[in-house]
């Protein structure tokens, strides 16, 4: 059994069980739930955050963190929209948007890996920086009237399913395989597990860390383009609070802030779970104001259950070795 699977097996299994449970209960509780329109709406709703969560999982596995993704969504969407507004061809505008995203990632990554500023502080700063820049370049105005060929990116329906859902699903599958299996991405587990040891293991720690921020911001930029296209307009408030939603999903899915654990599938299920709960509460006619509360409770329960599982495992381990083991760890520090 693979170590990644082993580390996160408990959490993934748990979320999967809960997701299934909610689906079963809801299919009895509401006739509207297991209805393809509702399911598609649900998936469409979580597609944007899922696209970003793929990058965020990779980043958090390496021990990184990015608060700026919501602002990147708004900034790149606005930038691409402004380009089209002044007559730049759609494809070039999209590429410019993506390039800006990559540059922001490079900016974050460079400061974090090379200058050594804490990821939270750095990306908290760039979160304000790029939200601010969005407001500055757009003068606070939304940009509408985008070309229809651009709108097609996020509005087209393929095999009865909207494109954003396709993007999300493809990215989750590819991302999961890469992070689990590919040599390059697997290095992130080692960096997150013990950065100093990873350096001595011959892993190019700084380069990979920077690349992780680039990938995350690039996916955020892609999400920004898809979102702008779907709405048919660039909104200056797009993606507000998205970073927290994404990070919540990734953590529910088994990652930790320390790094070294987490999977893309887990993060995806984390976002499905949150969307399901929101959807269920709506269908059951619960006051909308409860939704945020329930998301918070879900996150807390997920990490508590995980923690308790780990404590229990440690007890079992101690049961086998007990004080002898304790003695070892004491003496071993010498």
């Amino acid at each position: 059994m693979g170590f990644i699977r082993k580390i996160t097996r408990l959490r993934e299994f748990m979320i999967f069980a809960i997701v299934l449970g909610v689906i079963v209960i809801m299919s009895f509780a509401s006739p509207y739930f297991l209805n393809s329109a509702n399911i598609l709406a649900l998936l469409l709703g979580l597609s944007i955050e899922t696209i970003i969560a793929v990058g965020m999982t990779n980043l958090m596995v390496s021990g990184g963190f990015d608060m700026s993704v919501g602002s990147v969504v708004a900034f790149t969407g606005a930038a691409a929209a402004m380009c089209m507004d002044i007559g730049i061809p759609v494809i070039v505008a999209v590429l410019i948007g993506l390039a800006i995203g990559a540059l922001i990632g490079l900016f974050n990554g460079f400061i974090i890996a090379k200058v050594g500023i804490n990821p939270f502080v750095t990306t908290l700063a760039s979160m304000s920086l790029f939200r601010g820049l969005t407001l500055i370049i757009t003068k606070g105005q939304n940009i509408a009237g985008l070309p229809s060929s651009f709108k097609a990116i996020g509005q087209k329906v393929f095999l009865g399913v909207q494109t954003p859902i396709w993007y999300a699903i493809i990215l989750v599958i590819v991302g999961d395989i890469l992070l689990r299996k590919a040599r390059f991405f697997r290095q992130n587990y080692y960096i997150g597990g013990n950065e100093k040891a990873a350096f001595l293991s011959g892993i190019a720690v700084d380069k990979i860390k920077i690349l992780n921020y680039v990938i995350t911001a690039l996916l955020a930029a892609f999400a920004g383009i898809v979102m702008t296209s779907r709405l048919g307009a660039a909104s200056v408030t797009a993606g507000t609070g998205l970073e927290l939603k994404v990070i919540t999903a990734v953590i529910i899915g088994g990652a930790s802030l320390q790094g070294g654990e987490g999977t893309v599938i887990g993060a995806f299920m984390g976002s499905v779970l949150m969307a399901l709960i929101t959807n269920a509460l709506t269908l059951l006619g619960v006051d909308v104001y409860w939704q945020t509360f329930v998301i918070g409770a879900t996150l807390l329960i997920a990490v508590l259950v995980d923690r308790m599982g780990k404590i229990r495992k440690e007890r079992i381990k101690k049961g086998k070795k007990g004080g002898v083991n304790k003695c070892n760890t004491q003496a071993m520090k010498g």
């Binding site: 082993k6 580390i7 080692y190 597990g193 013990n194 100093k196 040891a197 001595l200 070294g260």
Partner: peptide
Amino acid sequence: KTQGLYLKFSIK
């Protein structure tokens, strides 16, 4: 512990 091993990971 701090520079050699990945303590949370398996032996393999």
